[in-house]
Design a protein around this nucleic acid. Sequence first.
DNA 1: TACCTTTGTTCATTCAAATGGACACAGCTC
DNA 2: GAGCTGTGTCCATTTGAATGAACAAAGGTA
Lengths: 110, 110
Amino acid sequence: MPRKRSYSRVTRQALTMLGKLIRIGRAERGLTAQELADRAGISRTTLSSIEKGAPGPEIGIVFEVASLVGLRLFESDERMLQVHSSRVDEKLTLLPKSVRHAVKEVDDDF
Amino acid sequence: MPRKRSYSRVTRQALTMLGKLIRIGRAERGLTAQELADRAGISRTTLSSIEKGAPGPEIGIVFEVASLVGLRLFESDERMLQVHSSRVDEKLTLLPKSVRHAVKEVDDDF
DNA sequence: TACCTTTGTTCATTCAAATGGACACAGCTC
DNA sequence: GAGCTGTGTCCATTTGAATGAACAAAGGTA
């Protein structure tokens, strides 16, 4: 099956935003594209598409680049955890192990 | 050239964290892995590795899934902009168009 | 000004991400 | 308990991301 993808506006915005923040971070640190690419172990071409906000690059690479220029993402909590107001692992273990759906209507007989 | 990659601890942590948040978000919305995968237009296998925090998946897909379960990433600013305390595009245009390095020492002759 | 570094972009090749089918098993539901 | 549903994982195949070289153009520097 063909593999054409579509992305929501929110996603595209987030990608563009992240790309710009990386670009700014790189400039603030006085790094050329080549230098940052080398440090991240990727090619300048890939870094370019990351800064452009392309959806294709691997998330690991993007996060690596982001951290290299000093961006804080989900750094083991802080912001994200405050937002979700509880510890993640705790929440995870309390969760049912699988999502089960009602077989029919639960009780809709009047 | 071979393409083996290494990721910093921060990156791996961020990936794991994001994966867990997605998993929690999915559970809270009562979605099965298959359902969420369908909505995102990806396979259940890929969703699985995303929730595991694998570095390989495309960032566009991960962000799409994240937004589908209600996670806020860089939603055109809010947190991130507060953190960086200024508007991004403004900062971008003020930046020098290219990073130039000093040819030698600027003035180191004593 | 001329020079040279940085960047944006294209392109063919390489290689791993994404797929989908399969299977075992955990864990709800009755 | 039996039965079914959701999940984790494997694997062969497909397809697109990552690469690196190349070139033009923009933009600092002398």
